[in-house]
Amino acid sequence: MNEILKVENLRRVFDVGAEKVHALKGISFTVTENEFVSIMGTSGSGKSTLLNILGCLDTPTSGEYYIDGISVSDRTKDELSVIRNRKIGFVFQAYNLLARTSALENVELPLLYNSSISASERHERAKHALELVGLQERMYHMPNQLSGGQQQRVAIARALVNDPVILLADEATGNLDTRTSYEIMSLFQELNAQGKTIAFVTHEPDIAVFTGRTIQLRDGHIVKDEPVKTQSARAALEALPPSDDY
């Protein structure tokens, strides 16, 4: 199996005034292709710091980090930008869609920063990504014309469009109700089944059960790293009492 992510003895120290805050105190793990990993922990456990490093938004103080076999530790900011553009798909808690911009244009955005992709190819790939998340009917809708779940689907399509080696989801269900959360988790499970590697940061244990493996962080250390008895989000969705919305 290909190693998609590999971290070795990762440390991250923040200088806060005279004090040094150790956010990560030597973390090592590997994520192989087609894994669905949840990274859990309470606030202050270091999971945001870890996610920022995994997403190449931040660099570790020491330790090694490889994504798709490429070392990330000593890269310039612009090199990190290119890695983010080609290797990583981000899904945020707050969707972070551009307002007054159609779903299609939102999804096209990462490809605009990749000059090797032509306008027509960009268009095709964005359409295809929206089809993957089931929004082919809503391509020209603005974000304010879409529900929260649909907006998150657009965001997932945007993360998929550059065909990344890993999807990094940061509390991707945090703003959604239970039913919609399960729908989104079901979508992630489908994508995983199609071969996508996913790292899913959450603090909700009932969301983590839909993933295949859980890494639990506490105070900058990994306290637990074990496979999960995966439950089907589709089944959980069907088990929910019928919504009174319908």
Binding site: K77, S81, V82, N85, F90, F92, L109, Y113, R158
Partner: peptide, 10 residues
């Protein structure tokens, strides 16, 4: 922030 996260350089 979003543009940077999806790969926009400085």
């Amino acid at each position: 922030g979003l543009r940077m996260s999806i790969g926009a350089t400085k």
